[in-house]
């Protein structure tokens, strides 16, 4: 328990320092400083890109979404208010919004293509569409945390979660966001965030049980 508290404190100190640096950059960006803009890009987009990659699955879409996020940062840097939340939360909020718009555009495009080609749906009806081939099908030797099949099944199950459920899990686990921050990023009440997390876990349980995992 003590070790957990020490780790948390250490991470908090790093996060506070990073936040301070981010605020300095934002002040400069508001004054059209391109060097600060570049520093912010290389400092923050690895996390933003990783989050968007989980959401969008395709590099070209993530490129476009990060592009949109950075343009929004350049145009709205002066409007960022630290009192409303951390810089990373603000950035993730923009990224989430841009990501959803791209997904919606892709969905519309796929609908049009399906309509035009009159193609039949996939045979099993369960594979998520628009996923890089390397995403699920690759043989990755590092896929060993809790066993090969565990990773395989978990990835499969995660892909079948709704976007809302997946987003909450990604933000809580991979991005270490608090439930208040997730509420800001996804623009919904904190109780909704907790409820989504609960149902995401429940859905994962059901999906893995349906796979009859040994």
């Amino acid at each position: 328990m003590i070790r957990h508290a020490e780790q948390t404190q250490g991470l908090n100190e790093i996060a506070q320092e990073s936040e301070k640096q981010g605020l300095l950059l934002m002040g400069k960006i508001a004054n059209q400083d391109r060097k600060a803009f570049e520093d912010l890009y290389f400092g923050y987009t690895p996390r933003i890109g990783r989050f968007l990659m989980k959401l969008l699955k395709k590099r070209e879409l993530v490129d476009e979404a990060v592009n949109d996020v950075m343009l929004a940062v350049w145009q709205q840097a002066g409007r960022y208010d630290p009192a409303q939340g951390k810089l990373s939360t603000w950035l993730f909020g923009i990224a989430h919004n841009k990501g959803l718009k791209l997904l919606e555009r892709q969905r519309r495009h796929q609908c049009e293509e399906t309509f035009l080609s009159q193609s039949s749906p996939s045979e099993n009806g369960q594979e998520p569409s628009g996923v890089d081939a390397e995403w699920i099908g690759s043989d990755n030797p590092e896929r060993t945390v809790m066993g090969w099949e565990m990773g395989e099944h978990l990835l499969w199950a995660m892909e079948l979660l709704s976007l809302e459920h997946r987003t909450v899990i990604e933000l809580a686990i991979n991005e270490q966001c608090s439930y208040q921050e997730i509420a800001l990023i996804t623009d919904c009440p904190v109780n909704t965030v907790k409820t989504r997390m609960f149902h995401a876990r429940k859905k994962l349980a059901e999906l893995l049980a349906s796979k009859d995992y040994p």
């Binding site: 690895p46 890109g49 990783r50 968007l52 990659m53 993530v62 390397e134 699920i136 990755n140 990773g151």
Partner: peptide, 9 residues
């Protein structure tokens, strides 16, 4: 999980 394709600036 290292399955997700990476994105780097």
């Amino acid at each position: 999980n290292t399955e997700t394709p990476d994105w780097q600036p």
